[in-house]
Design a protein around this nucleic acid. Structure first.
Lengths: 211, 211
DNA sequence: ACCACACTACACCGTGCAGTGTAGTTCGCT
DNA sequence: AGCGAACTACACTGCACGGTGTAGTGTGGT
């Protein structure tokens, strides 16, 4: 490790710093209004280095997008495992779903970030190579869908189309929260929790297995 | 009319042309990437005229936003009156709600347009005078909320918080549709209708009055 | 015939920014 | 000592765009 440590670690560190600075500035100021000079300054790096790491501004945006998407899907999967695995009784269901939604909402303003960045990518810098964006975009829905399918098999839910149920769940919780409160808040806002709880209850009214 | 017709009509016409061109270009290319020259060209008007009508680019954006918001709330209200007024029997409810949602979805990609423009306004051109944006933004939800409250009073729905129910309805229909399909489609896409129908059904499962 | 006005065409200025080229510095390695 | 790589500081080019000033054209009203 000592051989590569200072070099690669330094490299990796700078790379991460650039990505972070770029993400923050893109989110607050928008893609076009963010100058590469500003990114370099905020990252504590010379502009030339930015261009040496990533070829141009578009590629940098692409890299930011990939990084955020990556961490997004990782967090979703982890949270899913933490909160929805050992649910076997109907009584636990609401609590578990609320816990899941709240952890996503707080751990990750990322989700809002990612949506915004997607929009930036799509609108601002027109048509960058589309690649497997859809995979990343739809991954959360599908992961949640699988989990809901498991809950349906366990007799707790009545969800013939689990993927659709997942979309409905997301819409009723994050969708409503993002719609009512600007995407800026997410974490610390007191108004999030009640909204999420009511969303979960509506979801359960629609999808709970009838006795 | 002949006195003002050619003059004012010409003026109004050009004004509208500029607003339309600006809206289209802002939506497809984003605010910053749209040059005033391009707007003038697409509107069939000299750049100078654009600056004579609206003082600068920001003001033009503001005007576009106002115009779209205006037409949005008008369409919502009209559609609400057309589809949800004389519903008195439980059997009509699903059909009526689907009709409402579909007409909004097709008549108006506007809703998607408006959301996108809001984002542009908020992110791109930082802080333009905020004014009564919230009124326009939340108007649809509130209008639908009132209507749902009426349906609740008629004994067709069980919605103690009609405003929340409205948010849930919107999330389950438009939210899901916008999430799955890019905002570009809306109107002609065959996949919209089934999504909307399933959204309405989920909504009714959650909010229909229990016998 | 003339004025006022709306509008165009066009040239023009200033500026901010993407991207490049390069000389110089630091530092780990041998 | 000396080499090479990572990095910085900085100057510089080219361009696109916001905004303005202005001369000229068409047109309706008097």
């Amino acid at each position: 490790m000592p051989t590569t440590k200072t070099l690669r670690a330094g490299s990796a560190h700078k790379r991460a710093a650039i990505l972070t600075a770029a993400r923050e500035l893109f989110l607050t100021d928008g893609f076009d209004r963010t100058s590469v000079d500003a990114i370099a300054a905020q990252a504590g790096v010379s502009k030339r280095t930015v261009y040496d790491y990533f070829g141009d501004k578009q590629t940098l945006l692409r890299a930011v997008l990939d990084a955020v998407g990556q961490s997004l899907v990782a967090t979703i999967r982890r949270t899913l495992d933490d909160t929805l695995t050992d649910v076997t009784e109907a009584g636990e269901l609401e609590t578990a779903l609320v816990a899941f939604a709240m952890r996503i909402a707080t751990d990750m303003l990322d989700s809002a970030e990612y949506a915004t960045l997607q929009r930036l990518a799509q609108t601002e810098s027109d048509h960058l190579p589309h690649r497997d964006d859809q995979l990343i975009t739809y991954a959360p829905d599908e992961a949640l869908g699988e989990r809901l399918a498991a809950l349906a098999r366990a007799g707790l839910l009545d969800a013939p189309d689990p993927r659709l149920a997942a979309d409905h769940f997301i819409a009723l919780t994050f969708g409503v929260a993002l719609n009512r409160l600007g995407s800026a808040n997410a974490a610390e806002d007191d108004r999030v929790r009640p909204l999420v709880i009511e969303g979960v209850r509506a979801f359960l009214r629609a999808y709970r297995r009838e006795a």
